Amino acid sequence: MAWTLPVILCTIGATVVAYLLGSCNFAIIITKLFANDDIRNHGSGNAGLTNVLRTLGKGPALLTLIGDFSKGILSVILVRLLLHYIAGVNDFYVADYIVAIAALLGHNFPLYYGFRGGKGILVSFGAVMILSPIAGTICFIGFLLAVIFTKYVSFGSIVACILFPITTQLFYYLKTSTFSLTQLILALCISALIIFMHRSNISRLLHGKESKLSFKRK
Rank of each mutant, 00 (worst) to 15 (best):
Phe69Ala: 00
Leu56Ile: 10
Leu78Pro: 05
Lys71Glu: 13
Leu83Cys: 01
Ala61Trp: 03
Ile77Arg: 09
His84Phe: 14
Ala61Met: 03
Asp68Asn: 14
Leu83Trp: 05
Leu83Ile: 03
His84Arg: 14
Arg54Met: 10
Val76Thr: 10
Leu78Ala: 06
Leu82Phe: 07
Gly72Trp: 04
Leu53Met: 14
Ser70Lys: 07
Leu83His: 00
Ile86Asn: 01
Val79Thr: 09
Leu78Asn: 07
Thr64Arg: 06
Arg80Phe: 01
Lys71Trp: 13
Leu62Thr: 07
Val52Ala: 07
Leu83Glu: 02
His84Cys: 03
Leu56Asp: 08
Leu78Val: 10
Gly57Thr: 11
Leu62Ile: 13
Gly59Ser: 06
Ile86Cys: 04
Leu74Pro: 12
Lys71Ala: 12
Pro60Leu: 05
Arg54Ala: 13
Ala61Phe: 02
Leu56Asn: 13
Val79Lys: 03
Ile73Trp: 08
Leu65Tyr: 11
Leu78Ile: 08
Asp68Pro: 09
Val76Arg: 01
His84Asp: 07
Arg80Leu: 03
Leu78Asp: 01
Val79Leu: 08
Thr64Glu: 02
Val76Phe: 06
Leu65Met: 11
Leu78His: 08
Leu56Tyr: 12
Ile73Thr: 08
Ile86Ser: 06
Ile66Asp: 04
Lys58Phe: 11
Thr64Ile: 01
Gly72Met: 10
Gly72Tyr: 05
Pro60Ser: 09
Thr55Tyr: 11
Lys71Gly: 12
Gly57Lys: 14
Gly67Gln: 07
Leu82Gln: 01
Thr64Lys: 04
Ile86Pro: 03
Gly67Asn: 14
Pro60Ala: 04
Leu63Glu: 11
Leu53Asp: 03
Tyr85Cys: 05
Ile73Val: 15
Tyr85Ala: 00
Ile77His: 00
